[in-house]
Nucleic acid binder design. Structure first.
Lengths: 205, 205
DNA sequence: TAGATTGTTAATCGATTAACAATC
DNA sequence: TAGATTGTTAATCGATTAACAATC
């Protein structure tokens, strides 16, 4: 009954996964909820509780085998496979996103890049040829793409989201500094670095 | 007694502020907790409760004057002023961050850019001349910079953080996909777009 | 005035933590 | 075995929501 697992638990799993991959890189083979918690600033009880939603991955007395737990988390999160992602917006921000290597390195492949500006259509960013937004629905439907990133100005983000949803996209990473309205079965995550800075200035001085 | 205000309340204020600025742009002059909540997917009760920590900004029967509430929130968050920010890392990611116009537009000015690579030192990204990381402590201390962004590879992020903290930085926006250990009086926020994508794939299919 | 909406209190809900039996 | 650490239950803690008097 996956629907019974709180969103907040799901949201922490990628953090655990990232830490496990780092520990693995550093040559560790085994870890414990205590060690993991210390690294992440999270209580060991919370880590054990979160993991217990999906099964017993550890052994009393010894902890967790890193390679095993990592693989389990990858499967739970469905990131043991590769995903194709559509990118909308080929301005400064969209170009930077398209050039960022970190997505493909971690299993998210940019499959197509769209822009509404006729001057940009046909040009390339790295290996990506920019396509017209008019072609977005047919291309996304044909390739069965479920994930998209929005990197257009705030004033166009909602209409782009509507188009994406209409084309069957179920997960949107939104770089535009605006909240999107989408149906309940569509997931949205937001990236707005300025917002993060504004969350810290309150505490300064 | 600002210390009594929950972090989670502070973290929502920039979201409210962003929505208010948008409403203002769209020509609205007045709003209500209900309208704001509908836009943001947050209950009106929560918005009223959050705001009430800082004072009574609204009027019964009519709601909130957008310009006034916005100004109040800007002062609470200390973003009515301009802030200088240091950027560490001038690789692909750091260059993209340096070129991003959104920071300055919203009051966060990149004041200096550092890199450890001798080949990069002396070069420029846009108007920023890349400086040696060796000069970081003295420059940050002289200019009294309190906020920094880290855009270096994960394996160097912790040492960069240590240097920044030593130089007096109290707020760090970390683009490296790794958790940082810092003293209690230093605030850290994280940006890792892949992590956000991994938070959505769980729900797909 | 009547309708609308705030600010706030009390109730509910959910998440985190503490504690410990089980067991490696 | 003795020490360590899990998985889980119960207790605590904190955040969200509901409700409403106050009042514009």
């Amino acid at each position: 009954m996956p629907s019974s697992i709180p969103d907040i638990v799901i949201s922490r799993l990628p953090i655990y996964l990232r830490a496990l991959e780092r520990l693995s890189q550093e040559g560790h083979e085994v870890t414990s909820s205590h060690e993991l918690g210390k690294r992440l600033g999270i209580s060991s009880a919370q880590i054990r509780k979160d993991l217990s939603h999906f099964g017993g991955f550890g052994k009393q007395g010894t902890g967790y085998k890193i390679a095993f737990l990592r693989e389990q988390l990858r499967q739970v999160l469905k990131v043991e496979r590769e995903w194709e992602v559509a990118l909308v917006g080929a301005g400064d921000l969209g170009s930077a996103v398209a050039r960022y290597k970190g997505f493909a390195e971690r299993g998210f492949h940019i499959a197509c890049v769209f822009d509404s500006s006729p001057e940009k259509v046909g040009r390339s960013i790295d290996k990506f040829s920019i396509q017209s937004i008019d072609q977005l629905p047919s291309i996304i439907q044909e390739r069965g793409i479920r994930i998209a990133m929005i990197a257009v100005p705030a004033e166009h983000a909602q209409e782009v989201a509507n188009t994406l949803v209409g084309a069957g996209v179920k997960a949107i990473l939104n770089y535009a500094p605006i909240n999107l309205s989408v149906p309940d079965d569509v997931h949205v995550q937001y990236i707005d670095p300025v917002l993060h800075l504004q969350r810290m200035t309150y505490y300064l001085t």
